[in-house]
Design a protein around this nucleic acid. Structure first.
Lengths: 209, 209
DNA sequence: GTCTATAATAAGATAGAC
DNA sequence: GTCTATCTTATTATAGAC
């Protein structure tokens, strides 16, 4: 409405929105969508509740924004599986990208996992369209390598699930893994160790090299 | 107090408790601990809310009972990893048991997964004592086989995490897997297919056979 | 043992002052 | 744009009739 320095106007807005989204991510992980309260998101963002609702209108919108952030990250971090790379390099790259995501952005993985476990109410459409297409395309690449005798004859879709599950596990089950190993936090070398273990194991499982 | 046929007295009580626990399991999966309401548990159990609270006193107690059920199931279904079996048979048995659990009791796996993702508030003690001990014992068995040259030299603990993650994935991410594969439900043969894929893949990854 | 009614509290959301 | 005060509804839990 009032045009008071429109180009700098969004500064506070953007900062507040970022603070809200970060606080919201934690709240949604700890308490789930329904259990999260706008009040506690506001508290840990250091803002009055009304401001949070001013920026996002309602709780549903906050959650959508958090999920969108998560999917963007998934999209960026997933890397790719390119035929030209050949099975060895492609799998090395893919596993490394996924492991890296699990260790650098575990919260995104947790939000995603909770949403799926709870029935994917907000992600059904994403899975039905984008994800289904992605899996089918990558499965074709694997199948081509199999047909060419460059890797073991396994079901490509099961293989994709195997890579997803083994890599995400280190994000989603972080608490359990740390407790079992009697450690307080992950350290930098852990990601390398895991990536190298998984890469070698999977390549051997596919008779590559 | 009043001793009216004490041996039959528990009949309704037991039936009601079972109905409540089943309804509660669904509610806790869909909405998380904090998001679940005693009212909706009561509704889907077909009982007045006050009866639910009469049997379990409060929401926390209901959740504890659900978790206890889950851990009992984990304990029964996990099978064992026995040195005498040798690596091939032991891994075949273990993978089959875990896959079987994922397909027959996916809800237990989901409750467990959500609890861990959310920070294991109610399971820290279980993980710190029971689970840590279990993993260390089984890791020793794997290490013995490695030392005897009967399987590839991999980190045993990472191997256990790999088996856990790949098998549980089919329970926890059921919704995503079905959506990607454009299917409404799992069928009986799916469990066999998965167990056989994973067993072969893991044995190859360990240079067994 | 079972259930209705209700007390006490906390939630999402908005109106309107600043 | 920001925040205080408040409305409405939903929640846990209990008291007490049956």
């Amino acid at each position: 409405m009032t045009d008071n320095s429109n180009k700098k106007q969004g500064k506070i807005r953007q900062q507040s929105q970022e603070k809200i989204l970060e606080a919201a991510q934690d709240e949604f992980i700890t308490n789930g969508y329904k259990g999260a309260t706008v009040q506690s998101i506001a508290d840990s963002a250091g803002l009055p509740k009304a401001n949070v609702l001013y920026y996002f209108k309602n709780k549903e919108n906050i959650y959508h924004a958090v999920l969108e952030q998560t999917l963007d990250m998934w999209d960026e971090g997933i890397g790719d599986i390119k035929y030209e790379d050949g099975p060895k390099v492609a799998i090395e790259k893919f596993v490394a990208a996924k492991v890296n995501m699990s260790f650098t952005a575990p919260k995104a993985s947790k939000i995603y996992a909770m949403e799926i476990i709870q029935g994917a109410q907000h992600l059904k459409e994403f899975a039905r369209t984008y994800l289904r297409k992605w899996v089918r395309e990558k499965a074709k690449v694997f199948q081509k390598w199999i047909d060419e005798g460059r890797m073991a004859d396994v079901d490509p879709i099961s293989l994709i699930f195997l890579i997803w599950s083994t890599t995400q596990h280190y994000a989603d089950f972080e608490t359990q893994i740390l407790t079992i190993m009697n450690r307080a936090d992950y350290e930098d070398e852990d990601a390398d160790h895991v990536a190298s273990f998984l890469t070698q194991f999977i390549l051997r499982g596919l008779n590559i090299e």
